[in-house]
Design a protein around this nucleic acid. Structure first.
Lengths: 175, 175
DNA sequence: ACACTGTGAGACAAAAACGTCTCATGCGAT
DNA sequence: ATCGCATGAGACGTTTTTGTCTCACAGTGT
């Protein structure tokens, strides 16, 4: 139920409870029986989004092996939770980093650290900051989810398109 | 007035008319005098967003010179309108491409064409589709605007960070 | 057959947001 | 000094959305 709600709200941030209920496939009364109000629903979605993102980050073993491989694992792990990331984005791009839940800041810090260690080891270049790369990562994951949902990209390509773009950009690699 | 409204709504898609009016620096009554209702305000913002994006695309001369240089010009031209792009994104990621205004489809087609000609000329690799690269471009422009607004990135770096990431990714280039 | 649980539908009250209106104020032009 | 215009503030009506409640129904377990 929360998955369907996240999918829908990620695309329709202003949806009413009635619209969300229809999208999820239950009545508004039933939605209310499960979540004590719109605020409770949104809080549950946020919590789930952060929890699932945390699990994805954990599963990706960001500290292991080459940074490029870790990034690829991270992108793959984030594919199933990309609707939740889109939800986090669409509900409020007005993030106040000082007021975010600790779990989110922990996730963010670990991804920043991945880019930092890649840069330090020389695998990644010195020109782009870890903070920007982390934000770019979020943007591309959400953008890829959107592109797939819009039918402009095949869903099987998710991991490759995000990882290849982040690693190499559009310029062809020498072979 | 519309600029401030777009800035605010890009970050707070659910904002009320009262909140928008405060953010813009006028009273709700005055907002109403300028725009006949919430629907009219949102329509005006959408129209302005598409118009400004169209001007940016026009100014970038996407058909001239190397595709990489055209991309750099495009990113630079889009910096001032990135809040509007963020607004288009946040108001409805539920885009129905068949129902978009012709102006938007024209803009989208021209950016897709830039990536297509870059791929065809060999400047850009064959692995990433022009459609995905166009969506990635939108995502990174919005993500960069957000990163800057959040204070995680310096605003003077906007063009460089988006362009460098799209062209080369994080992998260091041989010098 | 009966009891229990969860649900949908719809009615209704409450709250939130929107739209409209009036009045006072400030500013600029004459 | 006066006039016209735009605005803010706040009141008030309207609409939308939310929250609550009741009743009927279906499914499941005993």
């Amino acid at each position: 139920m929360l998955r369907a709600a996240a999918d829908f709200l990620g695309r329709r941030p202003n949806a009413t409870q009635d619209e969300i209920a229809k999208a999820v496939g239950v009545s508004r009364a039933t939605l209310h029986r499960h979540f004590a109000g719109r605020g409770a629903l949104l809080a549950a979605l946020d919590d789930l989004a952060v929890a699932l993102l945390g699990e994805a980050v954990e599963a990706a073993d960001l500290d292991e092996g080459p940074a490029a491989e870790a990034l690829r694992r991270l992108v793959a792990a984030c594919e199933p939770v990309s609707p939740y990331l889109a939800l986090l984005y669409s509900q409020s791009l007005d993030l106040d980093l000082d007021r975010e839940p600790a779990a989110w800041l922990e996730i963010d810090a670990r991804i920043v650290e991945l880019f930092r260690r890649g840069r330090q080891s020389g695998e990644f270049g010195p020109d782009l900051t870890p903070a920007w790369l982390t934000d770019a990562f979020y943007s591309l994951v959400v953008g890829a989810a959107w592109s797939i949902q819009a039918g402009r990209t095949a869903s099987r390509d998710f991991t490759a398109i995000v990882t290849d773009l982040m690693l190499h950009g559009v310029t062809p690699r020498d072979r």
